[in-house]
Amino acid sequence: MTNVYPFPKSPKGKAVKLNRKDPGPAGGGPAGGSPAFRLRDHNGDPVDVLMAVIQAGGMYLIPTPERPVDDLPTTHLLRTIDGLNALTDAANVLVYHAMRHPAEFPQEDADTLVRQGKQAHKMMHKLDEMLPSDDFIMTMDSYGPDVMAEYATNAAIIIASTFALDVMVYYDKSFIRTGKDKRKAMFRDFQGAYRAARDECLSRSEGHEFLIKELTSAHRAMQKVLKAL
């Protein structure tokens, strides 16, 4: 995984919480010199949704050279699931805001975002279920489980990054284009970073699909040979 634009790193072993505080002085972080823009969540707390979406990327879009050497085979997938959960929290703030201001925000747009989130979680759950345990992967005298882990992780990144882009499409329409959030340049930078990450994994998935197709074909041929013995 390579990043065209570095996402903020999350503390090791900790999930990123929704950003409810100032990100720091101007120029001191991803927010640059633009003022933060916040919405109220269901508890009434102010949330910087854009920063929350960006921070979610830092949970799983980690350049390969920067990954901890002690990562287990399923660690990156679990980080990606955490990233999707963080994106869902951010999306929930947007949906709640739309419910509170129906005259400004079409309910069908919020409903679409909810459906996209549910679909993302459904697919992520399937990937999590199909992946063997770390112990099985590391003790199995075969490359098969490692390939499964690579496939599942790559697919998970596609799912999470696609939902991140869905959230950003909604945010763009509601807050960037309207000028309510002035951080247009930062928004475009990280929107491009999410898109690049997804496209990189989509390209890699083509290789996975070819491998699976060839393995399936070889397996069928072998089954015919074994039945003839």
Rank of each mutant, 00 (worst) to 15 (best):
D141Q: 11
K227F: 10
F163I: 09
P68G: 01
I157S: 02
G179E: 00
G57A: 13
A155K: 07
M124P: 05
R100L: 09
E150G: 11
P8I: 05
N154R: 15
M51S: 10
D141A: 09
R220H: 10
M168T: 05
P102S: 07
V147L: 15
V49M: 03
A56D: 04
G58T: 06
R67N: 03
D189S: 08
R183P: 02
S34T: 15
D128T: 10
R38G: 01
N85W: 01
M59T: 14
A197E: 09
V167K: 00
A52H: 04
F190P: 02
K118A: 14
P65R: 01
Q116R: 12
A103E: 12
P6F: 00
T178S: 07
V225W: 12
V147M: 14
A120W: 07
T153H: 05
K12W: 07
H101S: 15
D45P: 00
G28A: 13
M168R: 02
S205Q: 11
A98I: 02
K21P: 01
F105A: 08
D82M: 09
K227L: 10
Q55F: 10
E206Q: 11
I159Q: 03
V69Q: 12
A221T: 10
Q55Y: 15
H125C: 11
A164L: 04
S217C: 11
H121N: 14
E66N: 10
N154F: 01
Y143I: 09
G192V: 13
R100Q: 12
Y143S: 14
S34G: 11
P46E: 06
P106Q: 07
E104D: 12
R67K: 10
R195E: 15
S174G: 04
D109Y: 08
L165M: 08
T178H: 02
E129N: 11
H125R: 14
E129M: 13
L84M: 09
A164G: 06
L39T: 04
E108A: 11
M148E: 12
P68D: 07
